[in-house]
Simulated assay, not measured.
Amino acid sequence: MLSRKPLFPGVIELNFQAGEVFGCNVYLVFDGDEWLLIDIGYEETVDDFIEVIRQLDFPLSRCKTLVATHADVDHIQGLAKAKQVLRTSVTSHPNAVKPLQSGDRLLTLAEIEAQGLQMDMPPVEIEHQVNDGDIIQVGEKQLEVWHTPGHTDSQLAFRLDKILLSGDNIYRDGCVGAIDAHHGSDIKAFIKSLTRIRDSDVEWLLPSHGPMFRKDTAMLDATIERLKGYLTMADFGTLAESWPLMDEWEDEVAEGKLPEGLGG
């Protein structure tokens, strides 16, 4: 048996517990013998995570549900396998239901043809849908559901007292989850979600990738300002609100204006 190494009372991160990074962060939230998992990662690591759970002496029959923070393959490819082994249910935001139940390889980023990425995406039935303000009960513990769109339109975070299991919203280095139109990113929504996290009284952030960290308002301010800049950058294509350079170009064309030093 393994000695449990909770990050906070009732919260274990399974990679940290195992002393080895298998993939995305997988959080086991428990009270007594009842427990749930937030994300599961890739199908190939499901057995590794379940063996860690066995070694921690959690009864497999007491898994209340498997929660998907959002419908990206690196977080949820293993859901169907884990659900079968644990004989439990799956919980997600309504926006994640269709890609998860259909096994949509494009929306889940399991297939990116331009990069030669081809992964299986086993479909999985979703028994429970949750949205902002809902409560997921684990024993006597209550996880408050936050809908925090931006990275994807189905991104969820979960508040437990002064900690936030914060998904792909923000990482310790100030980076955020990938902004990609193909899986439902929305920069304005991302800014709103990060502002909510910044302005909350949570003290610790437990992200879906990388180390846990104390909430840093200055870092979040800088990240929010960076994302605001994305709204007027051609780099982000259809996700940008505008491209001021094109307004300047229209004016210069109308005026017949050339840069200084060019033209007769």
Rank of each mutant, 00 (worst) to 15 (best):
A96K: 00
A96S: 08
A96C: 03
A96H: 00
V97T: 12
V97C: 04
V97R: 12
V97A: 02
V97F: 03
K98D: 11
K98M: 09
K98Y: 10
K98W: 08
K98R: 14
P99W: 05
L100V: 02
L100F: 01
L100M: 09
L100W: 00
L100I: 04
L100K: 00
L100S: 01
Q101C: 12
Q101G: 12
Q101D: 10
S102H: 12
S102R: 13
S102P: 00
S102D: 15
S102I: 11
S102G: 08
G103A: 07
D104A: 05
D104K: 06
R105M: 09
R105I: 13
L106I: 15
L106F: 13
L107D: 04
T108K: 00
T108C: 06
L109K: 07
A110F: 02
A110D: 05
A110M: 05
E111R: 13
E111S: 10
E111K: 12
E111N: 12
I112F: 12
I112V: 15
I112N: 10
I112A: 11
I112L: 13
I112S: 08
E113S: 13
E113L: 13
E113D: 13
A114Y: 09
A114C: 09
Q115P: 03
Q115R: 11
Q115T: 06
Q115N: 11
Q115K: 12
Q115V: 05
G116T: 08
G116P: 09
L117P: 01
L117K: 10
Q118M: 14
Q118D: 15
Q118F: 15
M119D: 05
M119F: 08
M119C: 06
M119L: 15
D120L: 08
D120I: 04
M121L: 01
M121R: 00
M121K: 00
P122S: 10
P122G: 07
P122K: 06
P123H: 02
P123K: 01
P123Y: 04
V124H: 01
V124M: 03
V124G: 03
V124D: 02
E125M: 07
E125F: 11
I126Q: 01
H128Y: 14
H128T: 15
H128S: 12
Q129C: 10
Q129I: 04
Q129G: 04
V130S: 07
V130N: 05
D132A: 12
D132I: 08
D132Y: 07
D132Q: 11
D132M: 04
D132F: 06
D132K: 08
G133F: 13
G133C: 13
G133Y: 13
D134R: 05
D134G: 11
D134E: 11
I135A: 08
I135K: 11
I135S: 10
I135G: 07
I136N: 03
I136A: 03
Q137Y: 06
Q137W: 07
Q137T: 15
Q137V: 15
Q137I: 15
V138D: 01
V138G: 01
V138A: 00
G139S: 05
G139Q: 00
G139Y: 04
G139L: 03
E140T: 15
E140G: 13
E140Y: 10
E140A: 14
E140W: 08
Q142C: 11
Q142R: 15
Q142N: 14
Q142G: 06
Q142Y: 05
L143T: 06
L143H: 02
L143C: 06
L143A: 04
E144A: 02
E144Q: 12
E144I: 07
V145E: 03
V145W: 01
V145S: 04
V145D: 02
